[in-house]
Every structure is written in C-alpha cells, then in structure tokens.
Design a protein around this nucleic acid. Structure first.
Lengths: 244, 244
DNA sequence: TTGCATTGCGTATTTTTTACACATCACAAA
DNA sequence: TTTGTGATGTGTAAAAAATACGCAATGCAA
C-alpha cells in the first residue's frame, strides 16, 4: 500500500502555448450530493497530489506531471510553498476533501511547481476527460488557493523568461521567429518590435537556423529554427538578459 | 502543550552586514556522549524550528527570527523548500535528532527563508551564546543540508538586490554612499565604480540625503542618507534595475 | 602649513536599446 | 501571366544607459 503523507502535497501549474495564447492545464472538480445526486459545486484546480512516504518532493512533482500529461524530463521547477493554515478550509474545499481524501490533515502544506509543455502536441487523453486547457486570461472558478498559485507561477515564469531560455519548452521543436516572438509577447505581456527582436535572437548562438522553411502557409515561408540546449549550456556564462 | 508538526520545519538564513563583510548567523550544535561526556561532534546550523500545529509557515519563520535575533517586522522571505528524503539522514544529524527531537519524522520538509538584519546593532544576547556571525566566505562545517541552503539563500539575495531595494535592511538607518556601495559590492561579488554608483543612486528618489555629515572619521566627512520605504512604494512602478 | 585619505562632481566614450522604412518572397485571385 | 496580399528579412539613425576616468574640495593629523 502506498501511504501518503497526510499534510503535504505538490501542485503543478502546467503552462502550455498554442495559437498565440498561453494556457494552463486544469482539472474539473465536481461534487455531487450522495443522496440526491445533485451537483453541489463545480470548479477547477491545478494538477496536484499528495506526496508519498519516502518520496522526494521533486520526484512527487515529476510523478504528477507524468500522470496528468504523459510528459517526462521537461521543465519543472519549484516556485513557492503555500502553508497558510486556512488554505483548504473554504466550505467547498472541505466538502471535497472529506469525500475524496477523508484521512488528510486540515493543514496541508503544498509545494508549488511550474511546468511548461508544448500544448499543441499534447493529445487529449480519454482517461483524463476532465483535464482541459484554459487561456491564462479566461480562467474559470478555482478551488483552494489555486488562483493565487497560478498568479504566482505566472510571475515566476515571467521573471525566468527574462533570464533563461525556457520558452522553448513551450514551442514545437522547430519554430519560426514570429512564433517565438508571440510567445515572448504573451508571457511578458507587451508587444515587441519584430526587427529588434530578430536582432536580439541573432545574438543568441543557441538558436540555430535550419536549412528549411516553413510549409503550408499562404505567404512567404519563414526560416525555421531549433533551440540547442547543448550550445546554451556551453555558452551560458555569456549572460543572457532580455531586457523587455 | 504546544505540539509541533513532526515532518515540517522552517529554516531562516539570516544575513547581516558589518565592517564591509556579509555574515550569516549560525548556531553551534554540539553533541556529547551521554556516558563519557566526550564531544561526539561540533558543527553549526542556520536558525530553524519545527512548525507548530495551527501555525502558518510564514508566522513560524517570523517566530524563529524573533526568538533568535529579537527582530520583528524585518525582511523575511521564503526562497525554497527542501524536501529530499535523505536530508536529515546523515549519521551525525540522526544522532542529533534522536537525542533532541526523538519524536520527529525521518523525512522532514523544511521551508527556507532569507532574512536581513543590520548586524552592527544586533547585540550578542547572553541567552544565545552559541549563536554567532560567520563571514559568508569563512563558513564552518554545517549540519543537515544547510551548506546548500545558505548557497541558495545567497543566490536569492543576489537576484533580489538587483531588482529591489532590500539592501537597506542590512544597513544602519543612516548610512553613507560608500557604506551602501560596499554592501552592493559584497553581495554582488564585484567592484563598482564609485562615481557611477553615486550617479545611479542619485536617480533613486527613495534614497534621501540628510542635512547631516558623517562624524568621527579621520578624513572628509561624507553625506548621510536614509532610505524611504514610503517614497519607494509610491514610485516603484518606475522600475528599478541595477545592472551590475 | 602641509600631507593624506576620502568625498563630490563632471565629461567623454562605448554599448545597448529603441524607433522606424523598404525590398523580398510565395501563394492566390484575377 | 499578372497582380494583390500578407508576412518575412535586413539596415540605419537617434536616444538612452553603462562605463571609464580626471580633478578639485574637504577635514583631520602630522
């Protein structure tokens, strides 16, 4: 039997990018009255789970990520730990907990993780029908303190993007400059001049043009690039700051 | 009885600044053999304590800070949570735990906090004889995973200092430009041109010159400044980036 | 009175950021 | 085949920020 620690969980705020919008992967939470079958409430939460006994918290986050998306070895980083005593005490959260996890504590500490996936290749998995992408600016009602959690994760992502080339986790392997630019614009929340952006990218030696052009577009086909983690690791001492 | 949560603690990495060096407040840990009285080991740890039942983790960190330094309402921010399963399993750590806290778990999650105090006015308190300041580059042997913890706290501090005016927590209320500059040099680990630094500071409207000069120095007395949190809060939208 | 150490202030150069214009390409419609 | 449309690729000038550095002023001490 896999016993879990009854006061400790991990929550993964999973970001995806497709169609020029930044999305968050949420799971529907619906509680029905056991007698009448009437729906008591419906809302959404980020992907979380309790930590098992003898499990590293980082491993627990990887496990949650794999279970919910199928992805492994992708960007996954801790950003904050939520430890308020009242964070699971709202009425509907208590109803939910009592029904689903009756043995857990009233004071659950949750370690928040931020993760990035290319949501265009994440296939809807029939075993997770209740798991859906929401655009970051059209979030539904959220359970627990997950609204705050998502806000903090976004802040973390924004800061990270200015200093490290993490955006590529959100793009397909091969991408064009304007795809990359949209991503930066969406995350940073501001528009960037196309020509200046391309000059900036040209300085990043770890963004490598391929002998290949975009296909199937109704206009001039753009150059295709890949991100080389190798080159980045070798040259990262040459500091990177995107001062947008 | 104040029961604590047996698998959750907070650790405060408390930084101080005096005499142009950055210091960390550590507590001596010495275990003696109960029979022979022989010292089994001696090392140091940062200031930590378990979290009580019904206590917010941020409150727990404030409590630790107050108990160890007497300070309240000073800079105190969470920077990372340490949750490896083996983090308290080293032999000497187990010996220590079994003797001092026999009831705690083998898997302790610890939320790391970073705090800043002006160590020149922190009087040695006789009730904390085993608590001493160490220069950041002359650390003694450390228990648990506290060497890593301090390294991460320093990194956090460094990044924070580039974006927010937190350094003033480490300085006396009234300070000179060269004191401020030493602080920045020590934390950022690089030297800064005195004249350029002063131009930069002149742009920060929340650093206010007083009608007052330094006293008791054997050379030209310097202008004295204070930091105004008020002015900072009102003007913080004008972004601050110290690009050193 | 002079020497010493440190403060206060200014200017020139280099680098980075920002603003902006025009030609090119590839498909699609006429 | 020609032409229109929409996005791509490149260059240059101005503004702002960062860096390098010189020199006079101050105040105590010898």
């Amino acid at each position: 039997m896999d016993a879990f620690i009854n006061n400790l969980s991990v929550d993964c705020v999973i970001f995806g990018f497709s169609n020029k919008t930044l999305n968050v992967l949420l799971t529907k939470r619906e509680l029905k009255d056991p007698d009448s079958g009437m729906v008591l409430f419906t809302d959404f939460t980020v992907q979380g789970h309790h930590v098992y006994k003898g499990e590293n918290i980082n491993d627990a986050a990887s496990r949650v990520l794999k279970d919910k998306t199928g992805f492994e070895n992708i960007f996954l980083e801790q950003f904050y730990t939520f430890g308020d005593t009242d964070r699971v005490l709202k009425e509907r959260d208590q109803l939910w907990i009592k029904k689903k996890y009756p043995m857990i504590s009233d004071h659950v500490i949750s370690v928040g993780y931020c993760s990035l996936v290319d949501s265009s290749i994440l296939m809807p998995d029939t075993s997770h029908q209740d798991t859906v992408w929401f655009p970051i600016d059209e979030l539904p009602e959220l359970g627990f303190d997950h609204a705050k959690m998502i806000a903090m994760a976004l802040d973390f992502l924004r800061n990270k993007l200015r200093h490290e080339p993490i955006g590529f986790e959100l793009l397909p392997e091969k991408f064009t400059l304007s795809e990359m630019q949209s991503l930066y614009e969406v995350i940073l929340g501001k528009s960037i001049d196309r020509r200046n952006f391309s000059k900036k990218v040209a300085q990043m030696k770890f963004i490598i043009p391929l002998n290949e052009k975009q296909k199937g577009v109704a206009h001039r086909a753009a150059q295709v690039y890949i991100f080389s983690k190798d080159v980045y690791e070798r040259t990262k001492k040459d500091k990177l700051i995107l001062s947008y």
